[in-house]
Write a protein that binds this DNA or RNA. Structure first.
Lengths: 231, 231
DNA sequence: CCTAATAATTAGGTATACCTAAATCAAGGA
DNA sequence: TCCTTGATTTAGGTATACCTAATTATTAGG
């Protein structure tokens, strides 16, 4: 007698691979390398190869994979990845708006819960929040149908001449950095003037009408995205 | 070089064993047999033996286990089990009160999420709910310190003479049964008169002032707990 | 007190998702 | 074109948490 097959429960690990491929490949489906994935996920490259082979040869393949040529999400994989991103950003918004979390703590909690909430939970928190389209970091929340608008903002590190901008989004990754950004008033919607921005001399900005300069590390600066101020 | 040890993440599976031991052994720490656990958890008895050995010989043992003599929770195991029960019942209350879930759907969602929420999440939903002591099914919610008051109610099946009672709690297990109970008005706090209660002739009650009888299966009846009406 | 039935454990296997070390492939520079 | 280098894959192993089948304990009936 064959061992009884267990219910096809979505795996947290698989979810994380799909999210990583979406994040590295963008919605334009650029091919993503094993090494890039390994770095992003914090696992060995060999583990990535293994997983990609499984994902590609599953009954409903989640990726298109060719040896030595990287991966892309399949339609099914993209759907699942966007669902997880939607979960993540809705949960972050919910923690921030309804449960009064400090912004730097929402990411870690969402990162765990995003894999386990039901359709009903997703729908209920979305309704409670009035179907938000942007999360507390300024990131766009995919719709239930899996549509996500790409930002037309640019990273602070790629702004070539100084000027006045509005902050579109900040990174959610590192709680420590986020605490510092918060302390400097750097948050989505705030107005920001770029003073200096070269890898060599560093990144320096000021916020709102303040004349005080805020220095930023390369990493922090790269995760701040700006749109030109229309004012 | 030894493989790098991974962070000691609580295992969902271990949580479920501890909860099951608490549930079957009660807070009086009755010894629980492998077979009982296997039945409750839906796994093979051999799997239970295996897990119990691991739990008993872990760096911080979660159970006291002797071959062929059943298990009891250790102090650490009891603490963790009560924490999970607290999570479960707080989440149920939250889904019911804040997210307007139908009562028969809260259990399944809580069953998944209870393993993954942080201390902060626990604390925030407890605060939002005003530190509730009873969940929507009428079950007592353990405190943050791991105190849980035992019910002084009795199962409907053990009520020997008819009379008027107040419903203390109903089961959370089976959504289908719960939907039927809800349709009959059987919910915690409701007044109930026992009309007939014998395994042979079946269980029959009426609710509030209604003269209409409601028939109950043995299983449904066993999960309804009553206290004598003081009125 | 012995033994049959039942409960529990041991032995040996599966699948998942990692790992390291050893091969192999691909792509650019000489 | 060839070869070196870095990227990638293959091979072989670990830990978790299940499983079945075979074995061993316990306990209750005769």
């Amino acid at each position: 007698m064959p061992p009884r097959r267990q219910a096809n429960r979505n795996s947290e690990s698989v979810d994380n691979y799909l999210k990583a491929i979406l994040s590295l490949g963008g919605v334009e489906h650029r091919r993503v390398t094993s090494t890039a994935l390994a770095g992003h996920l914090g696992v060995a490259p060999a583990s990535v190869t293994n997983m990609l082979q499984k994902l590609a040869s599953a009954p409903t393949p989640m990726v298109e994979y060719e040896r030595h040529r990287g991966v892309q999400l399949s339609a099914d994989g993209k759907r699942r990845a966007l669902e997880i991103v939607r979960h993540h950003r809705l949960i972050e918004t919910f923690l921030y708006e309804v449960l009064d979390y400090p912004i730097e703590e929402v990411h870690e909690e969402a990162e765990r819960l995003e894999h386990f909430i039901s359709e009903r939970f997703e729908e209920r928190i979305a309704a409670k929040l009035g179907h938000p389209r942007i999360d507390p970091h300024g990131h766009s929340i995919p719709t239930m149908e899996g549509e996500m608008t790409e930002p037309n903002s640019v990273p602070l590190t790629e702004v070539l001449q100084g000027g006045t901008f509005v902050i579109d989004s900040v990174s959610d990754r590192d709680a420590h950095t986020l605490r510092e950004l918060k302390a400097s008033g750097i948050r989505p919607g705030a107005q920001l003037r770029v003073r200096k921005n070269t890898p060599a001399e560093g990144y320096s900005v000021s916020i709102g009408r303040s004349s005080r300069a805020v220095g930023l590390s390369r990493e922090a600066a790269g995760d701040i995205r700006l749109v030109p101020s229309t004012k």
